[in-house]
């Protein structure tokens, strides 16, 4: 039996985030919350392999009670069980404290019900750090395969996984022993439409909530703000560069507009240096 664990995060749809120019605070109102897209693809891959091998998919997510909808969404997409790791003491966690909590939970699930593959999205679109997956792998001493684009094979008898991972230079085919941790690109699997029974089940699904007290597995020193070595020093909007001149080609004609623009590039020594290198 295959047991996959998928770590998922709820994120604001980042295309809609802005800063209030008056207060300098993040404006979150009216910004839709979604399952981190990379996590959705990682989950889809886990569910595909569950259907191939037989077994189950467990999801975990760390966040406030509002993350329940994201766990329900995971159930809709084929997860069998979900845990919401939620405690005010976890608030303000940076990636180090987050990997601590996730690793402790994954370890405790693994002790009761051994896990073969831990799936993460390659990164979350709000923080874009790509640090929590590797952090959890290090804490659990699991082999890690990042930027996975295809799982070629999961062999439960031989206890190994074969994955294609894409780097900037090439695609690597990596074989690692199980259990292993994989962080996924979107290509790993298509997010399917939910089958009706899963959809119905998800509507009423209540994830088990894990807190400091209910689990007793966390050291208060390592969670939340206390467990986070980094702090935000300041936040702001990116500085605005100085805008250059605008030429209207409808007024002066296209060829004149191009000639004027290129003359400016010439004056900056750009075009001659560029064309000097072209044969």
């Amino acid at each position: 039996m295959f047991h996959a664990l998928v770590a998922i995060k709820q994120v604001p749809d980042t295309t809609n985030i802005r800063i209030d120019p008056e207060t300098g605070n993040l404006v979150r109102e009216g910004v839709p919350a979604i399952m981190n897209p990379y996590d959705a693809h990682a989950l889809a891959s886990a569910v595909e392999w569950k259907r191939k091998l037989g077994g189950k998919v467990t999801v975990v997510s760390m966040g406030p009670a509002s993350f329940t909808v994201t766990i329900r969404e995971a159930v809709e997409l084929g997860a069998d069980a979900g845990y919401l790791i939620s405690d005010r003491k976890f608030a303000g966690a940076d990636t180090l404290a987050t990997s601590y909590v996730l690793a402790a939970v994954i370890q405790s699930i693994h002790e009761k019900d051994p896990i073969d593959v831990v799936f993460f999205g390659k990164q979350a679109i709000d923080g874009d750090t790509a640090q929590v997956g590797p952090g959890v792998a290090v804490r659990l001493d699991l082999p890690i395969i990042t930027y996975a684009v295809k799982i070629r094979d999961i062999n439960l008898a031989k206890r190994h996984i074969v994955v294609e991972r894409k780097t900037e230079r090439w695609t690597e085919v990596v074989e690692a022993p199980l259990p292993a941790l994989v962080t996924c690109e979107k290509e790993i699997a298509e997010v399917p439409f939910a089958p009706l029974p899963d959809l119905i089940r998800s509507l009423r699904y209540e994830p088990e909530v894990l807190t400091m007290e209910s689990t007793g597995i966390f050291d208060a020193e390592h969670v939340g703000v206390r467990g986070s070595p980094t702090v935000v020093f300041k936040m702001g909007t990116p500085p605005l560069p100085e805008a250059g001149e605008k030429i209207n080609s409808r007024e002066i004609g296209v060829e004149a507009a191009v000639a004027t623009a290129f003359a400016k590039a010439d004056a900056a020594g750009i075009l001659s240096s560029v064309l000097g290198g072209v044969k």
């Binding site: 560069p241 805008a243 590039a265």
Partner: peptide, 19 residues
């Protein structure tokens, strides 16, 4: 246009062939 050194307001399908 805020980050451009030079901006050309116009139809790219005319401007690029001219370039």
């Amino acid at each position: 246009f805020d980050v451009a050194d030079v901006g050309i307001v116009g139809d790219l399908f005319e401007v690029i062939p001219a370039m």
